[in-house]
Amino acid sequence: MSDHAQSDLEDDLDWEEWDGKGSFLNHCVAGSIAGIAEHTLMYPFDTVKTHMQCSSCPGQPACPKSVPIQPPGIVQTFRSLATSKGGVSPLRMWRGVHTMFMGCVPAHALYFSSFEVGKKAFGADREGHHFMAAGAAGAISTFFHDSIMAPADTIKQRLQLGYYHGVRDCVKQMLKNEGPFSLYRSFPTTLAMNVPYGFIMVASNESLKKVINPTGEFNLFTSMVSGCGAGAVAASLTTPLDVVKTKLQTQNLGDIRTPPSGSAPTANAPHPNPIVHTPSSSAKNLKIQAAPLRPLHTSPPLFHPNAPPSPCPPTSSSPTYTNGYAAFRAILKEDGFIGLFKGMSPRLITHAPAVAISWTTYEGVKSLISEKGF
């Protein structure tokens, strides 16, 4: 056997007989750190994007009475979210960020480790540009990533909009009122968006790095520039599917909750049965029902002033939109073609630097770990 063939065989055995040490573990650690850096630093812009995509509250019958339409622009939406009753409330921009800590650590560890395996298996690490091979590795790793992140993203978006008291309350109410499937209702649409996104982003990133830095050595500038370019291209092409995904994940929100008759809400009071205001409700009844509304907690609320005053999970397990196609048709009917591109600006602002931060952090940490001999 030639030395070259023997070297290739040894490399294959390193991956196939991974024993929990060495480079594979390095990829997991570096990927987890990259995920935390990406999602936490760009989270406020993701909050703005979610609110812009839900601004008209389509498909939520009770919502127009409780959630006024959000301002259309990035600056206006950001300003509206960051202030509360005339005061500054910057923490509002970070509501639900802890869901990312719980989801992105295992998701990104699996993403980057499977990417490295796929990259080697498909031959994307060879000299030259291998767009399809790199894209295939990105697509496969995206599937593993989203299998973990889909439920976390659903919870995150509902918290961003001002619903529920926290992650535990959100999960409890979703399971009770909508069933376990509600956590994965957008999963097919998420895959339909993120698999092409992952393919385009990874392929573009790998090619850009080879053009800007042919040596292949880690370089901060190269990683940032290629990451920004790849993130911008992939985000712009997949915005319509992101709007559909958001619509699926946040549908049926807006039902108003009131305390049981003869009781007042307290900090630890259980959630009463929700009441939906219908157009046939009399003005007198609306006034009586709305009078006792206030957040069911004593600490200063992080809810947006335009969001419902208390956690408001859906009243039925029957979703308005059961799949992405139904949501897609509703968007076209209610907002027209332009509705498919709601939140595109903050999405670009989020994903371009997010990809740069994520991949630069990943490559940097991986390089540092390798140099230290871990």
Rank of each mutant, 00 (worst) to 15 (best):
H51Y: 07
P64W: 01
K65P: 08
F131P: 05
D125Y: 09
A121T: 14
L91P: 00
K119A: 15
G87Q: 15
P72S: 14
T50R: 09
F45K: 00
V97A: 02
A133E: 05
S80Q: 09
A150M: 12
K65S: 15
P68F: 02
I33C: 01
H129S: 11
S113K: 05
I36L: 15
P64F: 09
K120F: 00
Q70T: 06
S84L: 11
T83E: 13
T99H: 04
A124E: 03
Y43E: 04
H27D: 15
S66D: 15
F131M: 12
V105H: 05
S84C: 10
Q60L: 06
S84N: 11
M102T: 02
A133G: 07
T99N: 13
F144R: 02
P58G: 12
G73A: 09
S147A: 12
G86C: 06
I33A: 13
P72W: 03
T40P: 03
V67F: 06
C57W: 08
G59W: 02
R79E: 11
G35W: 01
M52F: 08
H130K: 11
K21L: 01
R95Q: 13
D125E: 14
G138C: 06
S32F: 02
S55T: 07
Y111L: 11
K21F: 13
C104R: 00
D46M: 12
F115R: 03
P151A: 06
I36K: 06
Y43T: 04
L25Q: 02
L110F: 03
P64G: 07
I36D: 00
P90K: 11
D46F: 13
M42S: 08
I36M: 10
Q60N: 08
L110N: 06
S56T: 15
M52H: 09
C104H: 01
C57N: 13
G73W: 04
F78M: 13
R95I: 07
A124L: 05
A34T: 08
Q60F: 00
F131V: 14
H27G: 09
F131L: 15
A37V: 09
A150S: 15
I74N: 02
R126S: 09
C63H: 08
M100E: 01
H27K: 03
H51F: 12
V97S: 00
M52L: 15
S23C: 10
K21C: 01
T99A: 14
F112I: 02
P58W: 10
D146C: 08
G73M: 03
A137M: 03
G96W: 01
S84P: 07
H98T: 13
V67L: 09
E127Q: 13
I36R: 10
G135S: 05
I74Q: 04
A133T: 05
S84F: 04
G59S: 07
T83D: 05
V75E: 10
A82P: 01
A37R: 02
I33T: 02
H145L: 13
T77P: 06
V67C: 15
R92M: 01
H129Y: 15
M102W: 15
M100P: 00
G123P: 06
Q60Y: 05
G22I: 01
P64T: 14
L91I: 13
G73L: 02
A107F: 07
S56G: 12
R92H: 12
